[in-house]
């Protein structure tokens, strides 16, 4: 009797262990997809056959040395590369299965669905309120002033900035500290209810405290949005992301669960990069 009980306990504990490892490999649905993406700046090729899935409600970190193509890939996701004349994109970028480079697509609407936060906080030279209200207003998301105020307040709250600025919404956004300005830009990005938020080195101009605030915010935002972040800080990628993609010389070398990439990367180049060795 006792032996069989023991066996049952042992079986239970192995199956539990099985579940634990399953949790880390649970895959959420694909939100965006890059398929055979090649990007050229004039004659120079910047990305080579990149295939990468961006999963819903997860943070995907793009890492790699300068010039590896990670920002180029990020900018493909909401067609920011369109603004560069010599830039040519081949392959498919899909948002919910729909090609964002389809000529029928309204680029302005696309960028509302796929918002962006840049390296240096770039608030408009307007009041805090206007910075956040601008997007919803031009997209017609509010029917009247009170709806607009509600959107602004909610966005600032989600960006973790409301408490700090609620008494001075009329003051210029440029008067805030660097970290506050970056959170203002995040509030501005989420005010138009995007589905995906792209972040290009959002913390590189911030001090460690402001960085921690933004990282905490990224973790919160992931519940509602899908996030793609380009970062030079490996520790940041390890801290904030669930998926990590390593780019090198325009190629996607390796992508996978962040835990796996940082404990047991499969590719020697990934290992060399994340451990700080010569590539």
């Amino acid at each position: 009797m006792m032996k069989s009980n023991l066996a049952a306990v042992e079986n239970a504990s192995t199956s539990e262990m099985g579940t634990v490892s399953d949790i880390s490999s649970v895959v959420s649905p694909i939100k965006m997809q890059g398929k055979d993406v090649n990007v050229f700046y004039g004659a120079k090729q910047a990305l080579f056959d990149v295939n990468l899935d961006i999963r819903k409600n997860q943070v995907t970190a793009l890492i790699g040395p300068s010039g590896c193509g990670k920002s180029t890939f990020l900018r493909c996701l909401n067609r920011m590369n369109d603004t560069i004349d010599i830039c040519r994109v081949q392959g498919d970028i899909l948002l919910d299965g729909e090609d964002v480079y389809n000529p029928q697509i309204d680029v302005v609407e696309l960028r509302a669905r796929v918002g962006m936060v840049f390296q240096k906080p770039n608030p408009f030279p307007k009041s805090i309120f206007e910075n956040v209200a601008y997007g919803p207003r031009i997209h017609g998301l509010a029917r009247n002033r009170s709806e607009l105020e509600e959107i602004v307040a909610k966005s600032l709250q989600r960006a973790g900035l409301f408490e700090e600025v609620k008494d001075r919404l009329d003051e210029p956004g440029t008067g805030l500290s660097g970290g506050q300005q970056q959170r203002l830009c995040i509030a501005r990005a989420i005010a138009v209810s995007p589905e995906v938020i792209l972040m290009d080195e959002p913390c590189s101009a911030l001090d460690p405290i402001a960085t921690a605030r933004v990282e905490e915010l990224i973790d919160e935002l992931r519940r509602k949005y899908t996030i793609v972040i380009v970062t030079h800080s490996m520790q940041q990628a390890a801290r904030v992301s669930q998926r990590t993609a390593f780019f090198h010389l325009g190629q996607l070398v390796e992508e996978g669960n962040t835990d796996d990439i940082f404990t047991n990367p499969k590719d020697q180049r990934t290992l060399d990069y994340i451990t700080g060795r010569f590539g």
Binding site: M234, Q235, A238, F262, T263, N264, P265, L271, I274, T275
Partner: peptide, 9 residues
């Protein structure tokens, strides 16, 4: 040094 991957192991 916040070692990762093989260094961490």
């Amino acid at each position: 040094r916040q070692p990762v991957a093989s260094d961490l192991r």
